[in-house]
Design a protein around this nucleic acid. Structure first.
Lengths: 229, 229
DNA sequence: GACGAATTGGACAAGAGTGTCTAATTTTGT
DNA sequence: ACAAAATTAGACACTCTTGTCCAATTCGTC
């Protein structure tokens, strides 16, 4: 809004910057403590702002919570679609390209701060805010899955995969590349790059064993060695 | 509450029955409201007991919470191992048997009341109680995965599957049979039998496409039709 | 029927948190 | 530099919740 007024460095600091700071701190506190356990004083302190400013900007604990969820939803969806845009439509090495895509998906959408926060908030408070939840549901997983399914369908049409139901394949792809990260998620922790790579690699290999065409050279070799056929 | 006043049927009602009732109600309320939001009065009312009785039995909100988690952990683990004991070691029809097993796993361990409650409590309050969490982690997923991996390894050794790493296969099996239930879990809702069957069927089919040996008659037929090899 | 233990409902103090208000101070725009 | 707007710190009323205490009642057992 008030961008670039001052000479240099940090032009927009006061009004909008504080708002952002508050929403960010609120996300963190709501996640750690839950809605009921979250303390406005703590949020204000963590944002480096007085309590009154929190009320001036958002009016209400509940309104603040809604603002947090909307903010996270928006950024997460943006990240997801930016990542889906990097899907390997014309793969050189299908396995390597899909592993790279899986890594980006995990890193940028599922394991990052926004993704973990949003997931936790939906899990903990989703039942209390059905409208907010419905909104996320439409914009989030629904579109993600169909967008991803479309990409897989294209890949199958081009002869790189043998897929009967692209929607099922898309969901299973996501499930597989996250299969080994479930415990880390339960802990609320952030899996390290090693784990993410391992999970993505194992997931993509199994996915290709199930849906790959024998054509793919390296894959066919690995598969025949594995299955012994 | 005044059940079984008659001569027999329910000898131990008062003391222990109330304890169980309180723990059950507390599980429900802790799940809905979170630890901070849970109200002892509400728990007491939901258990059909006075607030004082809650304090008499468990002494403290925190102690009550620990009791709830221990109770859920115990019952969930028992259910999981009882279900793993039904794993098809000598399958007649591998696909059908695995789908049946997947259904039992989903229904009795993951989608039932205890499973959903425990998962949610760990997600929401796990970070606040690291010891409790570590205990569950050792007893729960760790043992589950290795027990399941052992079963898959045996199946592979008997020639029914082609598995390189049984641990990975076990985790991916669980991920696949739940792939289509993720949204329901996010909602905290209970997926109906139709959804569970669909998810289990799709998951097992993909699992067998990836790890099945061509030998299996019906499977080989389906696979060759699918992959065109 | 009687005794002891458990349960109940209610009152209670203590503490914590929300949301409001105000006066003083700082920041921003002109 | 000046005026308007935003921010701050603190006090405040109000509500809610926890955990304790107690007298009356009920329940299980002998």
């Amino acid at each position: 809004m008030k961008l670039g007024v001052s000479p240099d460095t940090f032009p927009p600091r006061s009004h909008e910057a504080k708002r952002i700071s508050v929403v960010g701190a609120a996300a963190s506190v709501f996640c750690r403590e839950g809605f009921a356990g979250a303390n406005i004083d703590l949020i204000a302190a963590e944002a480096g702002v007085s309590r009154q400013t929190v009320y001036n900007h958002h009016g209400d604990k509940e309104k603040l919570f809604v603002a947090v969820v909307r903010d996270l939803t928006e950024r997460c969806n943006a990240g997801i679609f930016a990542t889906i845009a990097t899907f390997p439509d014309q793969p050189g090495n299908l396995e390597a390209d899909l592993i790279g895509f899986a890594m980006r998906m995990n890193r940028n959408c599922i394991c990052n701060r926004d993704g973990r926060f949003l997931r936790k908030l939906i899990q903990t408070e989703g039942e209390r805010y059905p409208e907010l939840f419905a909104e996320w549901r439409e914009q989030g997983p629904g579109r993600t899955w169909s967008a991803l399914a479309a990409r897989f369908a294209r890949l199958a049409y081009a002869g790189h995969l043998a897929i009967k139901d692209p929607d099922v394949a898309a969901r299973q792809f996501l499930a597989l590349i996250n299969a080994e990260l479930q415990i880390s998620f339960m802990l609320g922790g952030m899996p390290d790059d090693e784990e993410v790579l391992q999970s993505a690699t194992n997931g993509v290999r199994t996915f290709l064993s199930a849906f790959g065409r024998q054509k793919s050279a390296s894959h066919a070799a690995r598969k025949s060695a594995l299955v012994g056929a």
